[in-house]
Design a protein around this nucleic acid. Structure first.
Lengths: 260, 260
DNA sequence: TCAACATGTTGTACATAGCGCAACATCTTC
DNA sequence: GAAGATGTTGCGCTATGTACAACATGTTGA
């Protein structure tokens, strides 16, 4: 007997509270009761009570001057708890930091979630021209190095479920939009153990990435190096960056219990 | 007419959801429905529905093998949103990083919340022996440098409300436990514009700290340098670390609109 | 192998807590 | 001063959250 969808069990009041927390994003850092009421399509009194509850627990704070509300410190604490408890993040940070020192480019660790990769952590170079990281952001897996090394090991069937259309969305002139062409490249990537993003997502940005495995031998994420194309010459990528990113991936994998 | 306590408006279901999220802390990274039910004193069915709601939004994930639940990625995203929106964090990070390069010790930015300071951000040195930062943790303000520079500018009345007992809790042999003695020291700190923690909280750990102000001229936080006592000689503290931490505080304050 | 026990998941009725409606207190603008 | 905006307060009603119970499945021990 198949399990019932958990969506049948949702608690509406809790959903509303989460909706409210999610109204603070991008440049929207403070909001009033009335604006939140409009956005959430809830009565002001309801919004006020949600805010009161979240505020009493530190997830929301009120600016006493403007009377507007914003996210509270407890959201940071909760996020830090997640970080502490996630082994991949804990173990990869020192490796990312060392990697930045070696190649002087921005480094990331990323995981695959549905059709996207999500950057879990980043360490930035202090070069004047650099890729600026955005931890937490979601990017399409098929045109990023970190994503490609994670989908490269999927079966044909999985890949076709994963990318259901033969035509993929284009981001730049370099984006591979033909699924069959991408599948051939992924086979090569799986053999090589690394991937390159040649401006497939962003013009002027290149990445190299390698997969991270844990004690179960499964791929659980990827480490990548990202930077401006002008510094990612073919020679440098081949001779310096690929060896570095593969070594970093091996090191993190080893820390997570992966044995060759 | 005084405003009514917001606690009269709390939504119980939302409180329960937050209680649940807060069960994951320290070493407790996965929990089952039954254990959560015991901890929260709620029926299993209630806990299951809370979990279902939080899981449907990504704040909780289920381990398919153990069937246990853990924090989800959305908690990280929410925490990252907080970071992006908080000007103090954004503006202080590069200063912390530069400071680490100058003194090769761990640097922090911290704010005052109730009786404690909370470390908002840290940048670690790569010295083998170092202070290991714990972002998000709360420490008593009166025996940390970052705390002392924030309470030093309070009035006598505020301080007595702030520290209601004449006898303060001891953490080490060096902890100042007499409130009147501490008040005298705080007066000196307010004049100097910096504070030193001489193993008052942790044996073998010393800190120096200086206050951060914003455009309102109020103190909104502190920057500090922390390290093993063996490297924090009196001479080094005086000649190197105090000037560095004060300069860093000035720099961050300036970025936040503070004008002398 | 089977019974006991543990777990997470499913189902349902009812009472109370969440929601909706409205008013109030305060501030700002014209 | 009136109008309009805001956040906050109050209260009644009903829909939703809670409580109770059962089910499906896996594990353990005799």
């Amino acid at each position: 007997m198949a399990k019932k969808e958990k969506s049948d069990y949702l608690i509406q009041a809790v959903s509303h509270a989460l909706d409210l927390l999610e109204q603070f994003h991008d440049e929207i850092d403070e909001l009033g009761v009335t604006e939140l009421s409009k956005r959430l399509k809830l009565h002001k009194n309801n919004v006020f009570r949600l805010l009161a509850t979240l505020e009493s627990r530190g997830y929301i704070e009120q600016n006493r001057v403007t009377e507007n509300y914003r996210l509270g410190l407890k959201t940071l604490e909760l996020g830090q708890t997640f970080i502490r408890q996630m082994g991949l993040l804990r173990q990869s940070k020192p490796v990312l930091e060392a990697l930045v020192k070696e190649c002087n480019e921005t480094t990331y660790v990323a995981i695959l979630k549905e059709l996207n990769i999500i950057y879990l952590d980043a360490v930035e170079t202090d070069m004047t021209v650099r890729v600026v990281p955005r931890v937490g952001s979601r990017l399409p897996a098929y045109c990023t190095a970190a994503g490609k090394v994670q989908i490269a090991y999927m079966s044909d069937e999985e890949l076709e479920n994963y990318l259901p259309t033969k035509e993929l969305k284009r981001y730049t002139n370099s984006t591979v939009t033909d699924r069959d062409v991408l599948k051939k490249q992924l086979k090569v990537i799986a053999e090589q153990g690394y991937a390159i993003d040649n401006e497939e997502l962003d013009i002027g940005v290149k990445c190299v990435g390698a997969p991270i495995r844990d004690y179960t031998r499964r791929i659980i994420g990827a480490v990548s190096i990202s930077g401006p194309s002008m510094r990612f010459t073919d020679d440098r990528v081949e001779k310096e960056l690929i060896p570095l990113v593969m070594k970093a991936a091996e090191e993190i994998s080893s820390k997570l219990g992966f044995q060759k």
